[in-house]
Simulated scan of single mutants.
Amino acid sequence: MAAIIANPLDFNVDDLYVDLRQSIGCRLYLKCEGFNFAGSIKIKAAAEMVGAMERSGELRPGGTLVESSSGNMGVALSVVAASRGYRFVCVTDVRCTLTARRAMEALGSEVHVITEPDAEGGFLGARLARVARLCDENEGYLWLNQYANPGNWRGHYRTTGPEIAKAFPDVEVVFIGAGTTGTLMGCARYFRENRPEVTIVAVDTVGSVTFGRPSGRRLIPGLGTSVRPPILDASYADDVVYVTEPETVRTCRRLVRHGFLFGGSTGTVVAGARDWLARNAAHGTATAVAIAPDLGGNYLDTVYDEEWVARAFGADVTADVTADVAADVAADV
């Protein structure tokens, strides 16, 4: 039977998983979250946060929403705003891909691009300062504040966590990327309350301060923060694994060799899951699920561009990526 919708929020594929054993040689199932009109998992949190604001009466017809985003949440909120008749102002920074910025603008959003990081809070700190200024200068602007908004994690508590539990009743380990930590907190809370035996592993990027490590250069948008998100309760994560950005690129290239064009956040999560499973031999035969937050269309001019990778990480990293792909080809022969 044909699926017929009148609103873009009515379509989201929530039961598609990729068996990664042939792609990366690891017993891991990847939950694909990018098959919706926003192209990422962020559509769930965006709809939840806006819906809660509508129900409270704070957001009324014709209202203006403002949010800081490195890309995916900005696109998701652009979809929600366009579908419900709101204005949306997104504050992003130079790391946001051109494709994501153009998508937001095509959906009618106003995009502000921060070019200089804050001395202490990095690009995120600078973006938050711009959001605060916009709200001060424009009466009626409503800041969703995804970094502290409980709707961010509640959307995943209601959907993503239960979806995994239904698809894999025997799941033992779940790998979740940490950005704003909405997905992490929602899923971790769900499993803590309903399946406490499941191990929750957070995946973060090197250079992120989320779990107390020092700040460092990060070029790939999505995971990691330069300001610890207020909604994070680290006690819900049983372990944390860190991934370098060159390893993110390598993992994306390995996956695309097998026809799976995923985004940088997904590459980071898969790389972290693979590393953790390799170091925890007892879980080698465990039923493990990782969440893929996005697809790769927004990363064609960065992660999948040879010149960008060479400029960002050096020619040796590009050579390593080429070697990884060549090794996969040889293994398939």
Results as ranks from 00 to 15, higher is better:
Asp238Trp: 01
Leu261Lys: 04
Val206Asn: 02
Ser265Ala: 09
Ala281Met: 11
Thr225Asp: 13
His258Cys: 12
Ala281Phe: 11
Gly224Glu: 00
Gly186Phe: 06
Ser265Lys: 02
Val289Tyr: 10
Thr244Met: 04
Phe260Gln: 15
Ala281Val: 15
Pro229Cys: 07
Arg228Gln: 08
Pro169Arg: 02
Leu219Met: 08
Gly179Phe: 04
Val198Trp: 01
Thr244Gly: 07
Leu223Pro: 01
Thr205Lys: 10
Ala286Gln: 12
Val241Gln: 05
Ala202Phe: 04
Arg257Val: 00
Asp239Ser: 11
Ala281Leu: 15
Gly259Leu: 08
Ala290Cys: 08
Gly259Arg: 14
Tyr242Leu: 13
Val227Asn: 02
Gly216Leu: 10
Val203Gln: 04
Gly263Arg: 11
Val203Met: 04
Pro221Ala: 06
Arg192Leu: 10
Ala278Arg: 14
Ser208Ala: 11
Phe175Thr: 03
Leu277Met: 12
Arg254Ala: 14
Pro230Leu: 08
Asn194Cys: 09
Phe262Arg: 00
Val249Gly: 02
Val249Thr: 00
Arg213Gln: 05
Tyr236Gly: 02
Ile231Met: 11
Arg253Cys: 03
Ile231Trp: 00
Asp238Cys: 08
Ala290Lys: 03
Thr183Asn: 14
Asp204Met: 04
Gly179Ser: 09
Ala271Gln: 10
Tyr190Trp: 14
Pro196Ile: 07
Val243Leu: 09
Thr225Cys: 10
Ile231Ser: 10
Ile291His: 07
Arg189Lys: 13
Tyr236Gln: 11
Asp239Phe: 02
Thr210Leu: 12
Gly259Phe: 09
Ser235Thr: 15
Arg189Ala: 11
Ile291Ser: 06
Pro293Gly: 02
Tyr242Asn: 05
Thr244Asp: 13
Ala202Met: 06
Asp170Glu: 13
Ala290Pro: 00
Arg254Trp: 00
Gly263Val: 09
Val201Trp: 11
Pro293Met: 05
Gly216Trp: 08
Gly182Asn: 12
Val249Lys: 01
Asp204Gln: 11
Val171Cys: 06
Gly264His: 01
Leu277Pro: 09
Ala271Asn: 14
Ser208Cys: 04
His258Val: 13
Glu193His: 09
Thr244Asn: 10
Val256Ser: 14
Pro230Lys: 10
Ser235Glu: 10
Arg279Trp: 08
Val289Ile: 05
His258Lys: 14
